[in-house]
């Protein structure tokens, strides 16, 4: 099973590298997120970038969004390019195909997150005049890494689930765009329409939480959602069902 999953990851990465025509074009495509979140924002924030929880959002948000877009192509793209049936006609077990696709996405998102972290660290140190090399706050670094992993998994599984149902890559991408809009704008809307009393209660409930606590509670919640959606994806990913689709 592990070998089969690794084979799928190998294939997914090969395809991903050539998605824009060549691996050079792929690297150029990555330049924008890395430049914005790894150079521009860290330089603006200075050494605070390594200490503030706000920096977490930078290397969590972008990889999660990108992995969802990548996953939109995972099943719908294979169906659209007529490669899915040939893949299903091989000896690969259903779960190896599913996990291979999901893990290829998670790996891509994590590598992107680490690249943003590393470039951000270099950017801050090159522009900061304090003697000695500055490092990330350990809590932020490890917590961010864990949350990044869990959110990448979430993005990957959601992407696969949408891709499974979509008739085309375009449809999958559109659906994912709507989901992302809801996820990112719903909190803003809620904050504006919630009654004052509810807001006060929420503030009181969250006040005692430390950064560590927020990361732990948030991480546990995302993990639970990950596991539930993974179980759903496993149930939905069936050869006979995919052939009928």
């Amino acid at each position: 099973m592990i070998t089969d999953v690794a084979t799928m990851i190998w294939k997914e990465w090969r395809e991903l590298l050539r998605q824009r025509g060549s691996w050079k074009a792929f690297l150029v495509g990555l330049f924008v997120p890395v430049a914005v979140f790894g150079i521009m924002l860290p330089i603006q924030a200075g050494v605070d970038w390594l200490e503030t929880p706000i920096s977490l959002s930078a290397w969590i948000y972008m990889p999660t969004v990108l992995v969802m877009t990548m996953m939109a192509d995972s099943i719908a793209g294979e169906r659209e390019r007529h490669t899915l049936e040939t893949l299903l006609a091989t000896r690969l077990p259903d779960q190896a195909i599913l996990y291979g696709k999901i893990l290829a996405g998670v790996g891509y998102a994590l590598l992107l997150a680490l690249a943003i972290v590393a470039v951000g660290l270099v950017s801050v140190n090159l522009t900061d005049l304090t003697p000695g090399w500055q490092w990330y706050n350990a809590q932020i670094f490890w917590g961010g890494l864990a949350i990044s992993l869990l959110l990448s998994l979430l993005g990957s599984v959601v992407g696969v689930l949408i891709s499974l149902r979509a008739a085309s890559v375009r449809q999958a991408t559109q659906t994912l765009s709507y989901i992302m809009l809801v996820v990112f704008f719903l909190p803003v809307v809620l904050l504006q329409i919630l009654p004052r009393q509810v807001m006060v209660t929420l503030e009181q409930a969250l006040a005692p939480l430390t950064l560590e606590g927020v990361l732990l509670v948030g991480g546990a919640a995302v993990l639970l959602v990950d596991l539930a959606l993974l179980a759903l994806a496993r149930a939905r990913f069936r050869r006979t069902r995919l052939t009928l689709d």
Partner: peptide, 20 residues
């Protein structure tokens, strides 16, 4: 599973990964 392991197939479409 045992059947797919022991067979080869060229189905309705060639099924090649054209980016590879």
């Amino acid at each position: 599973d045992a059947i797919r392991e022991r067979t080869g197939a060229l189905l309705e479409h060639h099924g090649l990964y054209e980016r590879m």
